[in-house]
């Protein structure tokens, strides 16, 4: 693997794959801005060939694996050639159910396990559909960043849910994209969102265990809708078997839109796997 020093290195490697002809397979859907941030933080390494590009992104104690290849046979060849990797690897296979079956089978063949599955929920149309509670949630402060990170890391699955680092959280707070409800000096809950034009994306919606069923989540969700009055499309990803969360999102008009993310993971040894499996994930 070669360290990535600029985004052009990635696009040129993808170009080499596309020069082979029409059609490609990929699980790499990063925005330019996100990609530039990963490059700046030196989180990326790349293994290019004429039929495939494999990208690894360091994240805490594992790496995300992305591929861009002329076909799945090229992905297989590339990953078989990298069998000596020792860090746990996580690959998100994103698409419609039928589209990812073949790639999921390939990853199982290569020693990956099904870790979990997320599904995307969408809501079309703006405005809140149920009466807003009061008082409203408030914007997080810069001094909340460490607590926000601690809450996210304690409650969400870091392998599956693309958790931000403290720098990303600080940037989101500066942009007014994290809402919180406080209980004295503690955070009772938070909602982390992103806006791009008419689309608003709920990244994390979380109420601390001690404050559940007290209207905190509703205050956060209404605060979010109130800050996105002109959004036309709302989206989020949720663990597919988290019926409680799905039911809560449904209350606000979110429905599955058919896109799924099959999260595959490969541990390099049984000991490593035991270490990861023994940890609590929310």
């Amino acid at each position: 693997m070669i360290p990535v020093t600029g985004t052009a290195q990635i696009y040129e490697a993808m170009q080499d794959v596309k020069n082979r002809g029409p059609g490609f397979v990929t699980n790499f859907f990063s925005t330019e801005a996100k990609l530039a941030r990963w490059v700046d933080k030196r989180e990326l390494s790349i293994a290019p060939s004429d039929r495939s590009v494999i990208l690894l992104r360091r994240d805490r104690d594992f790496e995300h694996l992305y591929f861009f290849a002329s076909d799945l046979a090229a992905v297989r060849a590339a990953l078989q050639g990298q069998a000596g990797w020792t860090t746990p690897l996580v690959a998100d296979l994103i698409g419609r159910e039928a589209e990812i079956l073949e790639s999921a089978a390939l990853f199982v063949d290569l020693g990956y396990r099904h870790h979990t599955r997320l599904m995307r929920l969408s809501r079309i149309g703006g405005g809140s559909r149920v009466a807003p509670p009061s008082p409203d949630a408030e914007l997080a402060l810069a001094s909340d960043a460490a607590e926000v990170l601690a809450m996210l890391e304690a409650s969400f699955d870091r392998h599956a849910e693309q958790l931000p680092d403290e720098g990303e959280i600080a940037a989101a707070i500066a942009q007014g994209c994290i809402l919180v409800v406080r209980d004295g000096a503690r955070l009772a809950g938070l909602l982390f969102f992103e806006r791009t034009g008419l689309t608003a994306y709920v990244r994390y919606w979380l109420v601390a265990r001690a404050f559940r069923d007290k209207g905190v989540g509703a205050r956060l969700m209404h605060g979010f809708f109130a800050r996105c009055p002109d959004a036309r499309r709302f989206i989020l990803w949720v663990i597919a078997d988290n019926e409680n969360a799905i039911k809560r999102y449904a209350h606000y008009g979110f429905k599955p839109d058919g896109l799924v993310d099959q999260v595959m993971i490969r541990y390099s040894s049984p000991i490593q796997r035991a270490g990861f499996m023994g940890e609590k994930n929310g």
């Binding site: 029409p22 059609g23 859907f29 791009t196 034009g197 008419l198 689309t199």
Partner: peptide, 21 residues
């Protein structure tokens, strides 16, 4: 389409695949 949030990065790659095909 991008700045207005009509297409996200996943949609863009999907569109490329559709146009190629």
């Amino acid at each position: 389409f991008i700045a207005d949030g009509l297409l996200d990065s996943f949609d863009m790659v999907t569109l490329v695949a559709d146009l190629d095909k």
